[in-house]
Write a protein that binds this DNA or RNA. Structure first.
Length: 259
DNA sequence: ATGGCAATGTTTCATTGA
C-alpha cells in the first residue's frame, strides 16, 4: 500500500497538478492538507474520474483536510476532527483503509513563539497526543501523517542555528514530536538511509527552493507493527518544481502487505 | 536547472502561511 501526505495549499488551485501527480504515482491513500475548500464545493467528480473517492473535512479560506482512497479500496470508520478537542478549524480526518488506521492531520502553524496561535498549537498537539494514544490502543496498524509543522531534528532544517528557537523548530514543538514517537510511532522517513538536506517545505520567497533552504515538517509516522512492513519512504521534491507548485512536497511511504 | 511569494476574500490591500 502506498501512503501519501501532501499539503496542497489550495485544492482549487492545485487540482490539475494533483490529478497529474496521482496518475504518475498511483498512490492508494492520500492525505491532503490546506484544501481551503468547503465540503459542498469539494471536487469529488474530478477526483472520481481520476480514480479516487474522497472524504473531505474542509472550510473556506483556511485549513481543510481530505483523504483520497483509490478505487477498489474501502474507507471505513471515517472520523473528522480531534476527539475531545472542540475546534472550529478543520484539521483532522481519519479512516481505516486496508486494515490500516490512517490519521491525516494539519497541525497548527503557531505563527510566532509566545503568540496566541503558538499556545493554540501546543494545546492542539496535547489533544492530538491523547487522541493518538487512544487510537493506537485500538489499532495496532496505524499511520499518523500530515503537515505537522514541526522539524524534529537539526538535520531537518537547512540552517539549524538560524531556526533555533523559532516556530517550527522550538524545543517545546520538538518535545511534542518526541512524545508522539514515545507513544510507539516511528518516523517513516528515518527508517531508511536518506540523502542529506532532504526537506518537504520551502518558502516561496527568497529563492528558498533553488537554494534548498527548506525544512522537513511533513511526516508519516507509523506504529511499530506497521513500520516493520514499510519498504520505502521518500519525499518527491520534483513536485515542488514548475508552474504554480505548492510550497510543500509530498511524502510517500510504501507498505508491504501484512504477513 | 530549479527561480526571485502565494492564495484568499475582507479585493486594488490585509491576512495568513511557515
Amino acid at each position: 500500500m502506498k501512503l501519501v501526505t501532501w499539503n496542497v495549499n489550495s485544492l482549487n488551485v492545485r487540482l490539475p497538478r494533483l490529478i497529474d501527480w496521482l496518475a504518475a504515482n498511483a498512490p492508494d491513500v492520500v492525505g491532503l492538507q490546506e484544501t481551503k475548500t468547503e465540503d459542498a464545493k469539494f471536487p469529488h467528480d474530478e477526483l472520481r474520474k481520476a480514480g479516487y473517492v474522497a472524504h473531505a473535512f474542509g472550510q473556506r479560506t483556511y485549513n481543510g483536510v481530505a483523504l483520497l482512497v483509490r478505487d477498489g479500496l474501502d474507507a471505513t470508520d471515517v472520523v473528522a476532527g480531534l476527539p475531545g478537542f472542540a475546534d472550529e478549524q478543520k484539521r483532522v480526518i481519519a479512516a481505516t483503509v486496508g486494515g490500516v488506521r490512517v490519521v491525516n492531520a494539519y497541525v497548527p502553524n503557531g505563527q510566532a513563539i509566545g503568540s496566541d496561535k503558538y499556545a493554540y498549537k501546543l494545546a492542539w498537539c496535547k489533544a492530538a497526543t491523547a487522541a493518538l494514544r487512544e487510537a493506537l490502543a485500538a489499532h495496532s496498524r496505524l499511520a499518523f501523517m500530515g503537515d505537522m509543522n514541526i522539524a524534529p531534528e537539526p538535520r531537518d532544517v537547512h540552517d539549524p542555528a538560524l531556526w533555533e528557537g523559532q516556530v517550527l523548530f522550538s524545543e517545546p514543538e520538538r518535545a511534542v514530536f518526541r512524545e508522539w514517537l514515545g507513544l510507539g510511532l516511528v518516523d517513516g522517513f528515518r527508517c531508511f538511509d536518506q540523502p542529506p538536506n532532504t526537506f518537504s517545505w520551502w518558502d516561496y520567497r527568497m529563492l528558498a527552493f533553488p537554494k534548498n533552504r527548506g525544512l522537513r515538517i511533513d511526516h508519516i509516522l507509523l506504529s511499530t507493527a506497521l513500520a516493520e512492513h514499510c519498504t520505502a519512504c521518500r519525499i518527491d521534491r520534483n513536485a515542488r518544481k514548475g508552474e504554480k507548485p505548492s510550497d510543500h512536497a509530498p511524502v510517500i511511504a510504501e507498505l508491504a502487505p501484512a504477513a
